[in-house]
Amino acid sequence: MGSMNCDPPPIRAALFDMDGLLIDSEDLYTICTNTILQRYNRPTLPWSIKAQLQGRPGPQAGAIFHSWAQLPISKDQFFTEQSELQRELFPRTKPLPGVMELLRGFREKGVHMALATSSHAGNFKLKSSHLPELFEYFHRDHQVLGDDPRIPPGRGKPAPDIYLLALKVLNRTLTEQGHPPIRPEECLVFEDSVPGVEAGRRAGMQTVWCPHPELLVEYTGREKEVLAGLTGEHKEDEEAELQHTEVEVLEGKRRVGMPGEIDDGWGKLLKSLEGFPYHEFGIGQSTLN
């Protein structure tokens, strides 16, 4: 593992996951899944399995789920029943505590924002179209979805690609406006999932982990491992081989693609987004663009 060897720099950009972080959709996913499991006399989804599904793109999450669930129906039938329930429930999503205040605070302090969600376009619309007051904080060009064609197949979270792409689209706007580009180490990734935290750390970015209380129970004693991106969620049999990337962080001390180290100061656990500690990330009253 390559060491960061220095304190993290002040934050200029915040990159957000969506499900279970900005909105309460993770609980709705659980309701949908358990409804189907109960229809076919299967046990409800335990957090040990849900933890592996969170943050991952549909194909990878589906493979893990079906291997565990052993449902007596085809995957196509499951998908049909799941989609029907999601169409009913997803338009009910609402912001999680502290989210609106945090987005407003970042805007006031000049922190640039982008969205990086594993949700595909159809589900994203179901979950977001009734919440314009939240998603207006993310310019359309700065919303990166799980089925974005610029993300190669098999390179969803926990690979770093989606966060590197989110930074790339932000920087395109900034350079057009004459501002200096943001470096990966100047980004703060917000995640609720363990694979998502690993994606942020592998992108060479600072990361906030704000997990569901039940997920935190599942990882009791392993919190530092999660914050460093060292839980091994990035499995070579499920992801394409790590490609060499031209992006380097910290003047070449560490290549993007590697996780962090225990207690390196680049990952922080927050149990809520309420009362966010801006000063701990070098975010003052007027962050420079």
Rank of each mutant, 00 (worst) to 15 (best):
G275A: 09
I49F: 02
A228M: 08
K224V: 07
R39Y: 05
E26F: 04
I73Y: 01
P259D: 07
Y278N: 07
D76S: 15
G200H: 00
K109I: 11
G105W: 01
L102D: 12
T287M: 10
L270D: 06
F190A: 08
E241N: 03
H212A: 06
W209D: 01
G105R: 00
P95T: 08
C32G: 12
E280Q: 15
H234K: 08
T173M: 11
F124A: 13
D24E: 03
T207D: 07
D147N: 14
G267P: 08
S128I: 09
K157S: 03
E236M: 13
H139T: 12
M258V: 14
G232A: 04
A69P: 00
L103I: 05
M205Y: 01
F90V: 11
E186I: 04
G98R: 08
P46V: 14
P158N: 10
G58I: 12
S286G: 10
R92N: 14
D192L: 03
A13F: 07
D264H: 02
G196C: 09
E218K: 02
G284T: 14
E185W: 09
F276W: 09
P211W: 02
D19M: 07
Q243N: 09
G55E: 08
L85W: 02
H179Y: 15
I23Q: 00
E185C: 11
I283C: 00
L37P: 04
L115Y: 01
G178L: 10
L53V: 02
S3L: 12
Q143R: 15
R255H: 11
F135T: 04
F138V: 08
Q206L: 06
R104Y: 13
L170G: 10
S128Q: 01
E246V: 14
K268M: 15
Q82A: 11
Y137C: 10
F281V: 06
P149R: 14
V226A: 03
S67V: 04
P46C: 09
P8S: 09
E233P: 00
A228C: 07
Q206P: 00
I151E: 06
E239M: 13
P195N: 05
G204E: 01
P213Q: 05
A203F: 02
H142P: 04
I151T: 07
R107C: 08
D192E: 02
E133Q: 15
D161W: 08
D141I: 08
I162D: 06
A116W: 10
F78Y: 15
P211T: 01
A61W: 00
Q60A: 14
P153L: 10
Q52N: 12
F16W: 15
D147V: 07
I262P: 04
D27K: 12
K157V: 11
L134T: 12
V226D: 02
G284I: 05
P72A: 06
F79C: 11
N289P: 15
E214A: 14
G200W: 07
G55Q: 01
C210R: 09
W68C: 04
G55L: 05
A69L: 03
Q143N: 03
I162H: 12
P10T: 06
N289G: 07
P152H: 00
H244V: 13
G122Y: 05
G178R: 01
R202E: 04
L22H: 07
I151W: 00
E108L: 14
D192N: 02
M113T: 10
D141F: 04
W47M: 15
P132N: 05
E26L: 02
K75E: 13
L215D: 06
G105H: 01
H244G: 09
T287W: 00
